[in-house]
Nucleic acid binder design. Sequence first.
RNA 1: GGAGACGUGCCAGAGCGGCCGAAUGGGCUUCACUGCUAAUGAAGUGUGGGGCAACCCACCGGGGGUUCAAAUCCCCCCGUCUCCGCCA
Length: 428
Amino acid sequence: MIDINDLRDSPEKYRQSQRARGADESLVDQIISGDTLRREAINRHESLRAEQNAFGKKVAAAKGEEKQELLASVKELAASVKAEGAKADALKAEQDALVRRLPNLIEDGVPAGGEDDFDVVKTVGTPRDFDAEGFTPRDHLEIGELLGAIDMERGAKVSGSRFYFLKGVGARLELALLNMAMDQAVNAGFTPMITPTLVRPETMQGTGFDVAHDAEIYRLAEDDLYLVGTSEVPLAGYHSDEIVDLSAGPTRYAGWSSCYRREAGSHGKDTRGIIRVHQFNKVEMFSYVSPEDAAEEHLRMLAWEEEMLAKVELPYRVIHTAAGDLGMSAARKYDCEAWVPTQDAFRELTSTSNCTTFQARRLNIRERVAKDDGSKGGTRAVATLNGTLATTRWIVAILEHHQNADGSVNVPAALRPYLGGLEVLPVL
RNA sequence: GGAGACGUGCCAGAGCGGCCGAAUGGGCUUCACUGCUAAUGAAGUGUGGGGCAACCCACCGGGGGUUCAAAUCCCCCCGUCUCCGCCA
């Protein structure tokens, strides 16, 4: 949720942000007029309430006849306090709903437009030239089956489409990848976390996901619990309603979790293999930082993602996502996309978002700030950021990029210690 | 799943339907005293909202209700603990 005072002070930048996202800019003006109504209602209610409170003191002091008279005369006041209170509550709720609809204010330099309007920040490494090597690359599923690493058929038998088993060397490869990511994160100062994957609606909503309308979210209606699509959700909720101490620098968590996505709108897309599945595992970075440190932390997250990509020796590019593809909470987002040979395309492996103070305001996560004279001081919302370190999908790029003509796969050197020294994943 | 107890400020812990934003103790901050530390004394010490100045309003797990008035009474929800059962 954005800062309503800031929006009132400078609405034009919010209108611009909405335009860049291709979103409804009239929402900004609806919020401003809603805010005026809300404040007027609060004033009416509170001054009546003050009157009632003063009256109450007189009643408490009075006795006998006098008290009875006072009681009789105050009934009407009590009724109007109640009525104005109800009106004020309704207007507050209305206003709150409007404000919550407004996505985060984008940062300067974010490209305007939709999914295809990203800027390429850089390209690292070179896709393999399989023609020059004299063989046609197999896709990750074909390789996965040759290695006995991926079993889609039985996944579908047991759980339905977009489910799979990772088996044998495939299971080991995933664990190796995630463990390597965890180790890197811990070495960088992150606190490792294994999180809940079912959360309450408030946690989901606070993180910026719409429990009521988001078609991606699995729901357990009977328990009013929601399966997370990323550990960003529990890690953001972790410090909700808390005042955190960031005076010694950012608080960083590396979350390991299974992630669940309904993929409701993607029928027919990426139906082969494990590119787009209902359940996968992920190591996610999550940082709480002071607002002025957010931009720097964002670049650090990107660097940590690139460090991981370098370790698995994949060619990739970094894109600066356009405003319309940002999602509710993000003010800026960078994706790293690895080259997938058989798709002749770059595919997203990581994504890092700077959510500035948007999530923290919804989740009520603050820090204490010192006054100018150095004394106590008030509180303010912190900034939150998240970024991917590794996911099941990485296996796709690793299998395809490092494959040999016979279907075996070379293990990147950095990953070998996590596979018991294995240098090649052999064909069965 | 069944039965019961509880949920108050940074912590511990009182609280009669009006005099409670809340006793008391501890902690913390500042000042005084002290050669330093300790000890002692004094004052201060929540958050959010509205005006944005004095001031006013709200908040005692969350949400409803009763009442002129609720931390205090009633209902629902959430959480914690204890016992029993169940599953390991």
